[in-house]
Write a protein that binds this DNA or RNA. Structure first.
Lengths: 206, 206
DNA sequence: TCCATTTTGCACTAGTCAGTGCATTCTATC
DNA sequence: GATAGAATGCACTGACTAGTGCAAAATGGA
């Protein structure tokens, strides 16, 4: 509070604190004063940087979305078409499941859901910025595996959508929308099941 | 406002109005005064019936959950084990998809997501009261189809979970969490894809 | 050292809203 | 009709919070 004055990294500190507080209390319930206190910053500084509460919220969400995109893309990128498809899919499935079940990912999705009514553009932002790109990347990879002769896929986009569905949807139930930590064992099971079903449906006949 | 005094169906009118207003504005943003006005009822009447805003919200959510459960169970019940599995699954899939994409269902899920942080028990309530029962019923039906020799299923619960995942998860994206109406054609496509993939994975060899 | 900019602390406005109190009015039922 | 319980209208409290204004302090670069 008294230390660290000046024009240094206040902005990032504010963004971090904002997401923490918004995730904990929800957008409406969270007060700018709380964000300021959490960031160790004067309220005025927040208004200097972001103008108003809503802009601060948007900026925090956008930052988190970029973060999530990077981690998801990294996971997808590890899906090499030259490896055994069962092994490769299991590995990427596990990585994607970890991304999906990450505490911050849950918080981001919760905030999006909650503020959907009042800020619909936010959802488009996150979708264009993250979700769609991950899906596209996954579809590309699956197409290459199909081309390599290991999968029988007609529409890679649909296949990617379904792989994602089999992987993530079960976690909505099992983690109670992110309020319960899914034990590693269960995470592995779901991934296993998803890959198994996906391969049964899409594996090329020998 | 001036008509319809007395002790008649105020309660139901309040519940209906409450859900409408909460769904439109969100729990925090919605004011009890607005609910009262929408229901055509004095604010005091609401407090007489429900005590406080939170209890009103719970009651409204519970009522909606019961409603949703009934419609979902009806859909699952139409999955007869004696019919051709592809046809039967497509039909039940379409019905379930319609339930899932219903305006009120979306509103209910949005409210749950939004208030998850402040009222975690609410989610348990809905899950025990609706989601779990639908999943169980679906697992039961799938088990019977498997017994009839049409499906090769080891764990009916997992199969039901995956059928649900393939069916519903794509709609989260396509309807932008319920803010866009999914055209009937697309709804049919997704259902078709889900059933096809599910059958490829689980159909018994002839 | 000096200056422009940023940050801070604090007080203040204005608006919203849950919940209460009370006197009055209505209505179902006896 | 008479009566008890339910519903109404309206005013009010108390608490909270977004955003502003201002003067003082700190900071980094020249």
């Amino acid at each position: 509070m008294t230390v660290n004055r000046g024009r240094i990294d206040k902005r990032q500190a504010i963004l971090d604190a904002a997401f923490t507080v918004f995730a904990r209390d929800g957008y409406r319930q969270a007060s700018v004063d709380t964000v300021a206190a959490t960031a160790g910053v004067a309220k005025h500084t927040i208004y200097n940087h972001f103008g108003d509460k809503e802009s601060l919220f948007r900026a925090a969400v956008a930052a988190l979305a970029d973060d999530a995109l990077a981690r998801n893309l990294a996971a997808v990128a590890s899906l090499r078409p030259d490896r055994d498809p069962a092994e490769a899919l299991t590995e990427v499935g596990r990585k994607l499941a970890e991304c999906y079940c990450d505490e911050k990912s849950w918080a981001l999705r919760r905030l999006l859901h909650a503020e959907l009514a009042s800020m619909p553009e936010l959802q488009d932002l996150v979708r264009e910025r993250a979700t769609d790109k991950v899906n596209d990347a996954l579809a590309d990879r699956l197409a290459r595996i199909a081309l390599a002769g290991h999968l029988r896929i007609t529409d890679p986009a649909v296949a990617a959508e379904q792989f994602g569905a089999l992987l993530t949807a079960p976690f909505d139930t099992r983690s109670r929308l992110g309020t319960r930590k899914v034990p590693a064992k269960e995470l592995a099971e779901v991934t296993q099941n998803a890959v198994q079903t996906f391969l049964r449906a899409y594996r090329a006949e020998p």
